[in-house]
């Protein structure tokens, strides 16, 4: 790498990573374009969780979501020279991810449709029943169960509403960025997000009335806040 060979003060990986922590995404990708591979590590560190979360909520299969997340990051690296700062870097990354997800979902829809005998009948308006959630109070199972219920509710939102909804709610992209990612008009983005929110609310309504569930939600949020406050071991 260029930096380490030229007796750069940032040749220590730890110091380099600490230095890169405050660099903007757009500057990081420029560094990648210039051949500084450590900058790509920082990009991966910043985006892998967000990408996986978005893709996982779209495709629902963990292995497929992992594969598509990796594919997105690989494309970011391989085609880094094609990025121009006419849009935010996050917009570019999520455009790649959205296109990959759409292609995959299109391929899926062309396959012969199979129906699992173990799943409940697919009905958009059937609310998620959180009754089983109270049975096991262990932290991991509690989180997994809640995640499963939310994933099922999310999956029932039509794809054309789900993409802008997740980009806004989970990834917190602005309306303009979502417009760039999806290619939709701004008014369409706004109305689709609104419709998705209304549908999502209907789907999770039973959960919202469940006092114990809300208490568990607060516990999870408190734990997450505590984890964010503790510096990670590799820093």
């Amino acid at each position: 790498m260029n930096l380490s060979r030229e007796n750069n003060p940032l040749d220590d990986p730890r110091r380099l990573r600490a230095a890169l922590r405050d660099v903007r995404d757009e500057d990081l990708i420029v560094m990648v374009q210039q051949g500084q591979k450590r900058a790509f590590d920082e990009i991966v560190h910043r985006y892998k969780g967000r990408l996986f979360s978005f893709i996982m909520r779209m495709v629902k299969e963990p292995s497929l979501a992992e594969e598509l997340t990796q594919e997105t990051l690989i494309r970011v690296y391989v085609h880094a020279d094609k990025y121009r700062e006419i849009a935010r870097f996050s917009t570019w990354v999520f455009t790649i991810a959205t296109n990959l997800v759409r292609n995959k979902m299109r391929q899926r829809s062309r396959r012969p449709h199979t129906i699992s005998l173990n799943t409940a009948p697919d009905d958009d308006e059937v609310p998620v029943d959180p009754a089983d959630l109270r049975a096991d109070t262990s932290e991991r199972v509690q989180r997994e169960e809640l995640g499963r219920l939310i994933a099922e509710a999310t999956e029932k939102i039509p794809e054309r509403y789900r993409i802008p909804f997740l980009l806004r709610e989970v990834e917190q992209l602005s309306y303009e960025e979502i417009q760039q990612v999806t290619g939709l008009k701004l008014g369409t983005v706004r109305s689709r997000i609104n419709r998705a929110r209304t549908r999502f609310r209907l789907l999770i309504k039973p959960m919202l009335k469940n006092e114990s569930l809300l208490a568990e939600l607060e516990e999870i949020e408190a734990r997450a806040a505590a984890e964010d406050g503790v510096p990670s071991a590799d820093d």
Binding site: G49, F52, S53, T69, I150, R201, E221
Partner: peptide, 29 residues
């Protein structure tokens, strides 16, 4: 209130990456 709660639920149930994600990515890259 429901909109805010829905957002909190989505944030609280963010899927976790597999542990071996980084080296798998390195391999594929």
């Amino acid at each position: 209130q429901d909109l805010v709660l829905g957002r909190r639920l989505l944030a609280a149930t963010e899927p976790k990456l597999p542990d071996n994600f980084d080296w798998k990515l390195q391999l594929r890259l």
